[in-house]
Design a protein around this nucleic acid. Structure first.
Lengths: 371, 371
DNA sequence: CTGAAAGCGCTTACAG
DNA sequence: CTGAAAGCGCTTACAG
C-alpha cells in the first residue's frame, strides 16, 4: 500500500478520523484505550501525518521564511545555524531564500517566500525598503537581524555598530597607533556607515585628525580587503594599523600585507569586526569585535515562535565584545614608553628625549613608495 | 479582503475556477481573451497561488529536502549555494535539515524531511545506512553528494578521493619531502579513509617507509588540526611537511605551526584538501586539492529536477584539481639540487658531496623535543 | 469524550 | 476550449 493516511489509521484502530486526528494534534482529550489503539495502528502502518494536508486544513504552513543574502556566507551562516537551533523541537522548519545583495533578487526571494506562504519571516540584512517589510509584517510575524526597520524597532535584533567600531579604534589608539587605515564597508549599508562613524568618532576623541586618504571602501568580501591595502600603498599612504569594517575584508588585508612582506602585528596591527569562526585560526589570530551571530539567530527564531504563540518577546540589543587576539600590538614607541628600561631587550632602549626629536624613530609607518 | 483565492479571481474574470487554474498551471489551452481576463483579475486582486493547496491537490510539495551536516560549514555551505542556484528558475525550493554528524540527529532530520513530504532528496555526506537511503530512494528521487550508496552508484556525485590525496602527496614528494606528517579525518568517514589511502599509496610508490607516528587523526574541524600538530611535536615527531585531510584541519595546523614560530613554507610545507573559499586568503595562501563543491551542488539540483521530470541524468565523477599556492616549497636540499650554483644566493651553495655526508644539512625537520 | 460533516485552496480527470 | 465535480489528507467547529 502507498503511504498510509489518517483514515487508514482510524480504520485500523476502530475510531473516527476525528478522534485519530485528535491524538496526533493533542487538541482534545481522547479516552486512553482509543488513544493507545490509534498509536498502535499508526506504528504498525508506519503512519506519518502529511504536513501539507495539515497545513491546508489548519491554515499554517509550519514554515518560517528566512531571507538571507548568501547561504554560504560565513557571517550569515552562523545566524542560519542559530535559527535552525532555535526552531529545533518546534514543529516549524526554516526555508531559505537568498537575495545575493541584489535588490531585485531580494524582492523575488521575498515574493517566493510569501507566496508559499510562510507563517513567519526572518530577514537578515538586505536592502528591501522599510515600507515593504512593514507591509509583510502586517501579514505575518517578522523579525529582522542586523538591520533596523522604521516603525518596527521592537522587532529588530541589533548591535551597536557605532560603539563596537569605536571600541575597536580605541583599542588601537590605546596601543599608540595614530595613523590608522580604515577599510570601510559599502556606503549603501547602514552597518557600514555606522562603523565608519564609530571609527571617526574615536579618532576625534583622541584628537587625531581624520585623514581621508587613509580610508578605502570595500564590499565586505575578502578580495576587496586585499585591493584596499594595495590601493593604500599605491597612493603612498602611511599607517601603522589597519582596521577593517568586517573580518572578511580583514582577511583580504592580511594577505595584502603578507604580499608586501609586512609582519602582523610587529609592523602593522590589524583589526576586524564580526569574529567569524575562522578568525581564531588566522595567522596571527585576529583581534576583532565579536558579534553574537549564532545567539542572534537563536533569538530570532525564538521571537518568531513566541509571536506565533501570541506572546511576543521584547527585542533586546545584543552586546558586542572586543576579542583581543594576536593581530594587534603596541607601536614600538608605545612599548618603550611603557617599559623604557625593559631588560628583556639586549640593547638598552633609547632615551625618551632622543625619540622626541624624531617623529618615527623605530616605528615608521609603511608607505607604498618606500617599499 | 483577506488574501484572494483562485475562486475570487475566476469570479472577477467571469470564468470557472478550472479555467482560471489552467491559465496558472499552463496545463491546457485557454482562449486568449479569457486568459487575458484572468491575468488582469489576478493582477488587480494581487492574487498569489497558494502553494500548499496546490501541493495537496497535485501531490507535489515543490520542496526538495537537503540533508546536510551543518548549515554553516564552509564546505557544505558551498554545496548548498550550488543547490540553491541549480533550483533557481524551477518552482522548487530547497528545505534543509542538519544532522550535525550525529546518527540519531541525522535520522530525525531525514524523518522530518520525508514527513513533510519532499519531492526529492539530496543527501550531503553523513552516516545514514545505505539501506535506509535506498529505501527513501524508492519513494522519491535521491541524489547523494560526497558519499557512495551501495546499489545507487548512479545517483552519487563523487570525486576520486584516493587519487586526489595521492596527487597532494606526490606534490610534496616531488618537492623533496620525505618525512610528511598526515592529519587524517575520522576513521568512520569513508572520505577520510580514502584520502589516507591515497597518501599511503603515494608514499609506497616513492619507496618512503610509512611511519605510523607521523599520522594523527582529527575530526575535520580546525581545532583538531591544531591539536594534531601539538600531538606530533609532543611525541617528538620529525617532519618537513604536513598534509591535512581537509582545509579546515590545515588551518588549525597552520596555527599550531605559527605558535611554535615555524614558518610556512620555508620551514615546513602545508597542504590541505577541498579548497574552501577562505584558502586563497590564508597566510600564506594554502596549496590544496580543489573539490568543485559549488558545481556539485548545482549538478545535484539539476539531477533531481531531471529525475522529477522523468529524464534522469547520468551521474559523472567530478574532477579535482591541485591548487598550488604558497604553502608548499621545495626542501632546502631539493632547492639546491635544482640549482646548485644559484647565483641569487650571496654565498655559494655547499657542494653536493658535503650534503651527502650529512642527512639533514640545511633542512632539519622540526621535532617537538628540539624546540 | 467522540463522530459526521464541512472546508482549507487548489488540480484534474470527465464529459461536453 | 471549458465547466461541474470529485478529491488531495487533514483539522475543527458542531452536535451529541
Amino acid at each position: 500500500m502507498a503511504t498510509p493516511t489518517l483514515e487508514d489509521v482510524a480504520q485500523a484502530a476502530g475510531v473516527s478520523v476525528s478522534t485519530a486526528s485528535r491524538v496526533f494534534t493533542g487538541t482534545a482529550k481522547v479516552r486512553s484505550d482509543k488513544h493507545a489503539a490509534v498509536m498502535r495502528a499508526a506504528e504498525e502502518l508506519g503512519y506519518r501525518p502529511n504536513a501539507i494536508a495539515r497545513s491546508l486544513a489548519s491554515g499554517r504552513s509550519l514554515l518560517i521564511g528566512v531571507l538571507t543574502q548568501d547561504i554560504s556566507s560565513p557571517f550569515y551562516g552562523e545566524v542560519l545555524r542559530g535559527i535552525e537551533q532555535g526552531l529545533e523541537g518546534s514543529s516549524y522548519s526554516a526555508i531559505f531564500a537568498s537575495g545575493h545583495w541584489r535588490v531585485e533578487e531580494e524582492a523575488s526571494a521575498l515574493h517566493g517566500l510569501m507566496g508559499r506562504p510562510v507563517d513567519g519571516l526572518i530577514v537578515l540584512g538586505g536592502h528591501t525598503p522599510d515600507e515593504r517589510l512593514a507591509a509583510m509584517a502586517a501579514k505575518v510575524p517578522l523579525i529582522a537581524v542586523g538591520r533596523n526597520i522604521q516603525g518596527l524597532e521592537g522587532q529588530c535584533l541589533r548591535i551597536d555598530n557605532v560603539q563596537g567600531s569605536y571600541d575597536c579604534a580605541r583599542h588601537l589608539l590605546e596601543l599608540g597607533h595614530r595613523r590608522i587605515a580604515y577599510i570601510a564597508g559599502p556606503e549603501s549599508h547602514r552597518d557600514a556607515r555606522e562603523r565608519l562613524q564609530g571609527f571617526q568618532r574615536a579618532l576625534a576623541d583622541w584628537n587625531v585628525e581624520a585623514n581621508p586618504s587613509l580610508i578605502v571602501e570595500g564590499d565586505f568580501l575578502e578580495p576587496s580587503g586585499l585591493l584596499a591595502v594595495e590601493a593604500l600603498f599605491a597612493r603612498g599612504a602611511m599607517f601603522s594599523a589597519v582596521m577593517a569594517a568586517n573580518d572578511q575584508m580583514a582577511y583580504g588585508a592580511r594577505l595584502g600585507l603578507y604580499r608586501r612582506g609586512i609582519r602582523v602585528p610587529e609592523d602593522i596591527s590589524l583589526v576586524g569586526f564580526d569574529d567569524l569562526s575562522g578568525s581564531a585560526f588566522t595567522t596571527p589570530p585576529l583581534t576583532t569585535m565579536r558579534q553574537p551571530t549564532y545567539e542572534m539567530g537563536v533569538t530570532a527564531a525564538e521571537a518568531i515562535l513566541a509571536a506565533l504563540s501570541g506572546t511576543p518577546l521584547p527585542a533586546a540589543e545584543f552586546r558586542v565584545q572586543l576579542m583581543v587576539r594576536e593581530s594587534t600590538a603596541p607601536t614600538h614607541r608605545e612599548r618603550q614608553r611603557l617599559s623604557p628600561l625593559d631588560s628583556r631587550s639586549a640593547a638598552p632602549a633609547a632615551p625618551p628625549t632622543a625619540q622626541a626629536s624624531d617623529p618615527w624613530p623605530q616605528d615608521p609607518p609603511y608607505s607604498g613608495e618606500r617599499l
